[in-house]
């Protein structure tokens, strides 16, 4: 995947990631969690990052925002947010960017909020840090943010603690915290996992509306292809720390080219499909601690493997905005 030129690298791009690699030093060896990941997200665009558990979706988000724990290290590549290089930024510079230009929301919203601080203050904390507001102005703006994410009676709810709110309400509060400073980029890590279906739709609607209003770019991290299909303009598929395919959502769903993407789609239930037709993906993710990882990390599980697959992986742009990292695309 050298010489990566992300397909959608428009002039309007908010985030440009190229050759982004991350390693974790563990007792059992070095885990090559991300290998030359490349993508870009444009203004107002929603890109879904999909893949099975452990494929490196969340690690990508954490590494971009400098939230890796001590064992994790960015070993190469570049990530530019509105022109600012994130990989070489100091911890202080990153902390000034986090929550201001790039924000993140998480799954399990109730645990992701401070249990003993009322939600108005938690939103206010971000505003005081990044928008330079005083305590009173921050409290007033926090109520406006609660209104913006559709929480009824926001002035009263600002004094509520997370345990007094439902999961869906907590996720709205999370969104309010994340978008309070009108960031250019919002990373949503499995934002609807654990919420019931109607709440999921409401939460996704709120995120979509705010993105449309402010021109915020969104990275939607999910293992749920149906959600990605419904809510994103573009999908990047991750497998074992590689992005293997990246295409507009419709194209990817109708004409998947990477064998892994095809497998992933075949393993996703649809309304029209028959349950008996669902296919599990054979094999497991490769052990990322191995020193002799093959160039294509899907090769061992792939039924279209060729001798050519031993060659270093390269991006192939099959048509405009549709690229795949495979020597033998379907």
């Amino acid at each position: 995947m050298s010489a990566a030129t992300p397909a959608a690298a428009a002039s309007q791009s908010v985030l440009d990631v190229t050759d982004f690699s991350v390693e974790f030093r563990t007792r059992a060896g070095i885990v090559r969690a991300l290998d030359r990941v490349a993508f870009s997200v444009g203004r107002g665009e929603t890109m879904a990052l999909v893949g099975e558990s452990g494929s490196g979706k969340s690690v990508t988000a954490y590494a971009l925002l400098g939230l890796l724990d001590a064992a994790g290290r960015i070993t190469g590549g570049s990530a530019r947010l509105e022109g600012t290089e994130l990989t070489s930024a100091s911890p202080a510079a990153l902390s000034a960017i986090r929550g201001k230009r790039a924000a993140m929301i998480f799954q399990n919203p109730r645990a992701a909020l401070n249990p003993i601080r009322n939600v108005g203050k938690q939103i206010g904390d971000v505003l005081r840090r990044h928008a330079g507001l005083g305590a009173r102005a921050a409290a007033a703006e926090a109520i406006e943010m609660l209104r913006a994410v559709g929480i009824p009676d926001p002035a009263r709810r600002a004094g509520a603690y997370p345990f007094e709110l439902s999961g869906g309400m907590c996720q709205r509060v999370m969104i309010a915290i994340a978008v309070a400073t009108r960031p250019a980029l919002l990373i949503a890590d499995e934002p609807t996992t654990g919420l019931d279906v109607t709440t999921q739709a409401v939460v996704m609607d709120i995120m979509g509306r705010l993105a449309a209003e402010t021109g915020m770019a969104t990275i939607l991290i999910t293992h749920d292809l149906a959600l990605a299909a419904e809510r994103s303009g573009r999908i990047a598929v991750m497998h074992a720390g590689h992005i293997v395919e990246d295409a507009p959502t419709k194209t990817l769903l109708l004409y998947p080219r990477h064998p892994y993407t095809r497998r992933l789609l075949a393993a996703t239930p649809t309304a029209a499909g028959n349950l008996a037709d669902l296919r599990s993906i054979p094999g497991n993710l490769p052990d990322l601690r191995r020193d002799d990882l093959p160039p294509c990390r899907f090769a061992a599980r792939c039924d279209r493997r060729l001798p050519a697959c031993e060659a270093p992986m390269q991006w192939r742009e099959l048509e405009p905005h549709h690229r795949v990292a495979c020597w033998n695309p379907a």
């Binding site: 925002l65 990153l94 902390s95 998480f106 401070n114 904390d125 971000v126």
Partner: peptide, 8 residues
């Protein structure tokens, strides 16, 4: 983690 992600 949320607080760190908010850059506090």
């Amino acid at each position: 983690r949320t607080a760190r992600a908010s850059g506090l």
